[in-house]
Amino acid sequence: MSARSPRTVVVDDSRFMRGLIADILESGGVEVVGEAGDGREALSVVADTDPDVVTMDVEMPEMDGIEAVERLMADHPTPTLMLSAYTAEGAEETFAALDAGAVDFFAKPGGEVSMGVSRMEEQLVETVRSVAEADISTTGRSRRTEAAAAATTAAGSAPRGRSTTAIEPNTTLVIGSSTGGPDAVERVVSALPGDADLRGVVVQHMPEAFTGRFAERLDAACDLSVVEAEDGMRLGKGELAVARGGHHLEIGSARNGRLRLKVFDEERGQGVRPSVNVAMESAADVVDDPLIGVVLTGMGADGSDGVQALAQAGGRVLAQDEETSVVYGMPKRAAETGCVDTVLPLDDIAGGITGETV
């Protein structure tokens, strides 16, 4: 994190919300250098002030947040945090903004104009500071498309889902991520072969209204079957489950190549829910077959306890490298434990899972 306070432009069509967000950020030590009431005005304000980070509402007149992010990334690339409604519709729009190049999102509780934001001051300030430090060269669908094309060329244009024998039978996979994670997870799972003998879970820090849509996006992007986790669900070969937002996910048992999941909302002292630590530690406790843990981009230290548990259980641990991480927080803390076997660029992670990348 830089020594000085990040400089921020706040974009929202509600004057009340602009003032509320600006007050919260400034009270947390973030300098607000400009405000805008719609996407078109935001482009002008950003060009004039050259901020470190932009907070961008999704629903606005004249030019909405999605188009504004597209234009911003083309004309004046700036790390952008989307502020979206805590709804399924808000999730759809937010993922479109992430595709356009936004770094992360913050779901406003209680609707578009909400005093609920003030109850989450610390989290909002922390997220803005994290996004201000993000490497935006790794974000957006265009980057995913370029990476996929390069991977296909490097593999001799081999089709997705090609057969592989590198993965050991009955392998369990646990992937954890946070800031920048939706894009990173998609790039990893879309590169995994559809007939691989693995099953597992994805733990992405994300609100409950968003995780179902995230699972659908992953399912459409890859040859594995991906669903949102439900309590008591069983997973077999070729199946992944995304942890439900606002709930912890544990692997309750592992028998005959199938995992049984536990989904619950009790406090576990992790500071985040779902927690990568909770999922990884449960896998270490109950899985006797081959076990692989992966820690991708994200702020904070979630996963650092989990990778230690996996290593002690004989599992293999991979972490994303600093250069390709949007925020090198979680992978760094995982690597500092000494329990990470391999640190890899994002587009080599899938090969690390299958054993094709050493």
Rank of each mutant, 00 (worst) to 15 (best):
A100V: 11
E67G: 11
M73S: 06
F105W: 05
D64K: 01
M63I: 03
A107T: 11
P109R: 13
M63E: 04
M115D: 14
A100S: 14
D48L: 12
Y86M: 15
Y86Q: 14
E92Q: 13
V131W: 08
E67Y: 01
V117L: 15
P61M: 00
D38M: 03
M73D: 09
A96G: 07
H76T: 13
E89M: 03
V113I: 15
G110A: 12
T127M: 15
R71M: 08
D75N: 11
T49H: 13
A97D: 07
S84I: 05
A68S: 14
A107G: 14
M73T: 05
D57T: 04
T55W: 08
E41D: 14
V53I: 13
F95E: 12
S137G: 15
V58W: 04
A97G: 08
D48G: 10
A74E: 15
T127R: 15
V113N: 08
L124G: 03
E41I: 13
A42M: 10
D135Y: 02
V58Q: 06
R40W: 02
P61G: 01
E92L: 12
A91Y: 07
S137Y: 03
V53A: 09
A85P: 00
G116L: 10
F95I: 11
T94Y: 07
F95M: 11
G116K: 13
P51L: 06
Q123T: 14
E62S: 03
P51E: 08
